[in-house]
Amino acid sequence: MHDITILPADLIRLLQTDLTRLDVHRLQELILGVDYEIAMLKKAKSQVDAALTKRYGEQAQTALAATGRDFGTAHLTDGDVAIKAELPKRVRWDQEKLAEIARRITAAGDTVEDFIDVKLSVSESRYNAWPPTLRDQFTPARTVEAGKPTFTLTSGED
């Protein structure tokens, strides 16, 4: 590898046209540097979040409980600093049990969509494995769009 000439912190000052003109080895070094910085920042953010939870989590839960809630936003203070603590509610639904409930709703003559949000999808591997006669029935409901491209640079030095 070559010496890194562009640091991730300098990246924001560069125009996209400047980046597209970089020597490929410099571009590769820039990618590695940015990926490293991202990993370090994610780790640092996780540690800071854990410290905040350890320091204020119990206070926030107590403040919410005092208002009869387990989840939501609590406002705390630490000296002259105001702290907004958000303890979100995460709900997960058992898909097999919901499917059974949906069958019972249908069997009772009701409309499933009146009770359950239904999103239908077909896996691409399943769609591609179907015979053309079946696939042709689904094709009008299928839209194909380009995803975000990704590029991986590797040199003989790696």
Rank of each mutant, 00 (worst) to 15 (best):
Q137F: 04
N128L: 12
P149D: 09
L134R: 15
S123G: 11
A129G: 06
A99C: 00
A51W: 14
D49N: 12
A102L: 04
L15K: 15
I12L: 12
D35G: 01
D80Q: 14
K45I: 09
G33P: 02
K148L: 12
L153R: 05
R21P: 00
L52V: 04
A65D: 11
Y36G: 01
R13L: 09
T67M: 11
L87M: 13
R142M: 15
I116A: 05
L134A: 14
T111S: 06
I116H: 02
T62P: 01
L120M: 07
Q95K: 12
P88D: 08
P140H: 07
I101N: 04
V81R: 09
E100C: 00
D23E: 11
R21G: 08
L64K: 08
K84C: 06
G72S: 08
E100R: 10
A108E: 06
L87Y: 06
K54H: 13
K89N: 06
T152M: 03
N128T: 05
L15P: 00
L32Q: 06
D110R: 05
G156S: 13
R92Q: 10
R104Q: 12
D23Q: 09
K97A: 14
K97F: 02
V118H: 04
L11Y: 09
A74K: 03
R126T: 12
L30A: 05
R13Q: 13
D49A: 15
P88Q: 05
R13D: 13
M40S: 07
A99S: 11
T5L: 11
A146P: 02
L52K: 14
A82G: 11
D3Y: 10
L27Y: 04
L22S: 03
D80A: 12
I12W: 06
P140A: 08
I6V: 14
T53V: 13
D110G: 05
K84F: 01
R104E: 11
L52A: 12
H75Y: 15
L120V: 10
K43S: 12
G57C: 06
Q59N: 14
P140Q: 08
L64V: 10
A63M: 07
V34E: 02
R126M: 09
T111L: 03
F138I: 13
A65F: 04
E29A: 11
A99M: 07
A65G: 10
L22I: 05
A129K: 09
D35Y: 00
A74T: 04
Y127N: 02
D136E: 15
R69D: 03
T17Y: 02
T150I: 10
S123A: 14
Y36P: 00
E58F: 00
Q137D: 09
L98H: 03
A51D: 10
D49Y: 03
T62I: 14
E145I: 13
V144R: 11
V112E: 01
L19I: 15
E86W: 06
G33Q: 03
V91K: 05
A102K: 00
R26M: 02
L41K: 11
T67K: 15
K84S: 12
N128P: 01
Q59K: 15
D136G: 09
Y56A: 07
L134E: 14
L7G: 07
L15E: 14
L120S: 07
E58H: 11
D3T: 13
I6D: 05
L30G: 00
I12M: 08
T73G: 00
A44Y: 08
K119G: 02
V122P: 01
L134M: 13
D18I: 03
